[in-house]
Design a protein around this nucleic acid. Structure first.
Lengths: 235, 235
DNA sequence: GTTCTTTCGCTACGAGTCGTAGCGTAACTG
DNA sequence: CAGTTACGCTACGACTCGTAGCGAAAGAAC
């Protein structure tokens, strides 16, 4: 892992681990760095190159898949030297995590006034996200690599999985405020319930789309929400 | 796919697609071919080599993961020339499917007298299977490759996914016979319900183990079964 | 036994990718 | 201005891929 960055550069400007590249969403597209924050001394890294590289990674991932994605290809597609890639990301894994993590930023918990409506809305959002080719190619490949690489596994959880659990907590809190769900008895039990609901929603939708290969229709979403709501749907 | 087998050999003896390698489970381990079926003219292919290759593939997969798995490594670990691999399997994908598919043969529907017990037993079996390193490394990698390779995707469904849906159908039928579930109204609706239950069980357990990275405890299985049974668990 | 057919292990090959190093140049700071 | 850092470019050794050619081994047919 300590492979790139030949000189002892400060890690703060590198999007590799500490600061995800999506933190400064849209600056000036033509002017590379209008980020007026702390600046180092020499020539700053081109933010446009960052954006071009991440976009090229997503495109190449959708076209060629994980196995077909080569660093050289990404570099030439982004109009960037291959060495520039390695100066910023130590390996393909890290690059793809950063390229993909931003895709999940759009998920929001809408608070539509009922638990059923909230669940169906989130499932629909997640289904739309999983319908995109770059998400399909990236997500399972990332998960597969994360099985072996514990550090990558941790990064995936921090950048992709954990932020989504927030949605479950928000939806639960809203439903509890409306009186649709009972208040939590203890924190540990609540945490476990959030985990189980999250794994069920994410796992089921992913399996339906990515493994079974069948689409998420409104009818399917309705039936799945019936299953999730359980007693609340009928009693 | 039409890459190996330089001469026009009959496909019946090749484990590549038509006949999975697990059809003749244990012959004589020393004598290569005791399969007294139809034999070609020349020197028969060593069944011991088949077994050694598939075993070496599973071992290497657990150690090195999909990306680290090289055909040369598998060959040397199996005590076989690299060319022998390519004479039998056209690519890494096909080899791994054959090596992994047999792992799922052990899953059975127990029929323990109640729907709850049946579900918990199947979840426990699936959890045990997913706890094995070779399953972890192989399953997600196969799914990931299947996203791009439609033919591989079809093979995965035929060899791994569809046989497991049988378990859901069996459990549903048993529960209907006991009166725990209503009889099906129409076949289409029943098929959709089998699909949704299957995706929920498989997807959730896989997501819990492989993505969230947390174990399947009896307590978790109980709570998840509560969720699945829904109204039946309380009313 | 002899002959025929097919598979076996081995070696070598061109093509492609990986990640790194070195160079001269561009960009920005003090 | 000098100092510092990032950039594009080229080249490199190491590795894997999938194939081809060879002589030898193992059964089948006679």
């Amino acid at each position: 892992m300590p492979a790139a960055q030949p000189p002892a550069s400060p890690e703060s400007t590198v999007p590799t681990c500490t600061e995800p590249a999506s933190s400064a969403p849209e600056a000036a597209h033509t002017t590379p760095e209008a980020v007026g924050a702390t600046r180092a001394k020499g020539r700053p890294r081109s933010a446009a190159a960052d954006r071009a590289i991440l976009a090229a990674t997503r495109e190449a991932l959708a076209e060629l898949g994980w196995g077909g994605l080569t660093m050289g290809h990404v570099a030439s597609r982004a109009g960037v030297a291959k060495t520039t890639l390695y100066r910023r990301w130590p390996s393909k894994n890290e690059l793809v995590v950063d390229a993909v993590a931003t895709l999940f930023d759009d998920l929001v918990m809408p608070d539509l006034g009922s638990l059923r409506a909230d669940i169906e809305a989130v499932v629909a959002q997640f289904a739309d996200l999983l319908a995109r080719p770059e998400t399909q190619a990236a997500l399972l490949a990332l998960f597969a690599e994360g099985i072996r690489d514990r550090q990558l596994h941790r990064r995936i959880r921090e950048a992709i999985v954990d932020p989504q659990k927030r949605l479950v907590r928000q939806g639960r809190s809203a439903a509890q405020a409306r009186g649709e769900l009972e208040a939590d008895t203890d924190a540990e039990s609540a945490r476990e319930e959030v985990d189980i609901i999250f794994d069920t929603i994410a796992g089921t939708v992913e399996h339906r789309v990515l493994v079974s290969g069948e689409p998420i229709t409104p009818e399917w979403t309705r039936r799945f929400t019936d299953l999730l709501l359980g007693p609340l749907a009928t009693c």
